[in-house]
C-alpha cells in the first residue's frame, strides 16, 4: 500500500525515487502542516522546503528508521519553527495553545497519506458519471436536485450513483483496514 522508498536510493541521487516519494506524500504532509499552521499556502511552502532540504543535504544526512516518519517529523519541526518566529503573526495567538498540546503522531499522519492513496484509487475506478455526481456533491456542495437539473437526469439516478460511490469507498477502506 505505502510506497517503500529507501533513503539509500535518494542518497545515491535517484531523482525518480525522490519524485515518487514526493508525489506519494505531498497532499498528506500538506494537510498535516495545515493542521498546525491553519494556512494552506504556508503549509505547502513548508512541505516543499523539507523536500528541498532532503535532496540538497542528502549526502550529509543520516536517517535511521522510516523515511516517512523522518519527513513528518521534519515538517512538524518546520511548522513549529515558523510559528515560534511569528511569521504567521495574525494566526499566532490562536494557535499558541494548540502548539503546546499538539503531540507528534507520525503513525496517524502516515495513515492519512495511505488513506489518500486509497481514496484517489477508488475515485479513479468509479464509473465516470458516478464520479462526476459524487464530486459535484462532495467537492462543490451541489444538492441532489441541483445535480439532477444540471446533468438532465432524475434525482433517483443521483441517489443511486451516490449510493454506489459510498459503497465503493466503504469497501475499499474496509479492505485497507483489513490488510493494515
Amino acid at each position: 500500500m505505502s510506497v517503500a522508498i529507501q533513503f539509500a536510493s535518494i542518497k545515491n541521487g535517484d531523482i525518480k525515487a525522490y519524485e515518487t516519494l514526493f508525489r506519494s506524500l505531498y497532499p498528506a504532509l500538506c494537510a498535516y502542516a495545515n493542521k498546525l499552521l491553519n494556512d494552506a499556502d504556508w503549509a505547502e511552502e513548508m512541505v516543499q522546503e523539507v523536500f528541498y532540504l532532503l535532496w540538497k543535504n542528502k549526502t550529509q544526512l543520516t536517517i535511521t528508521g522510516s523515511l516517512n516518519a523522518y519527513l513528518y517529523k521534519a515538517v512538524h519541526n518546520k511548522c513549529l519553527h515558523l510559528i515560534a518566529h511569528r511569521q504567521v503573526k495574525e494566526k499566532y495567538s490562536q494557535h499558541q495553545q494548540y502548539q503546546n498540546n499538539e503531540v507528534f503522531n507520525a503513525d496517524e499522519a502516515m495513515h492519512t497519506g495511505e488513506l489518500y492513496t486509497v481514496y484517489k484509487n477508488t475515485l479513479r475506478t468509479l464509473p465516470q458519471r458516478c464520479r462526476q455526481i459524487f464530486q459535484m456533491n462532495r467537492n462543490y456542495g451541489y444538492k441532489y436536485h441541483e445535480i439532477a437539473e444540471k446533468l438532465s437526469i432524475s434525482v433517483k439516478t443521483v441517489e443511486a450513483d451516490m449510493g454506489k460511490a459510498l459503497k465503493a469507498f466503504r469497501q475499499s477502506l474496509a479492505a485497507y483496514n483489513a490488510n493494515d
Binding site: F22, R23, Y26, P27, A28, C30, A31, A40, E44, T112, L115, Y116, Y119, K120, R138, N139, F169, L173
Partner: peptide, 13 residues
Amino acid sequence: ILNKMQEMEQYDT
C-alpha cells in the same frame, strides 16, 4: 474520512 480526503485535494502535487 472522505471529507478529510476532499480537503487534501486542494494541494496540487
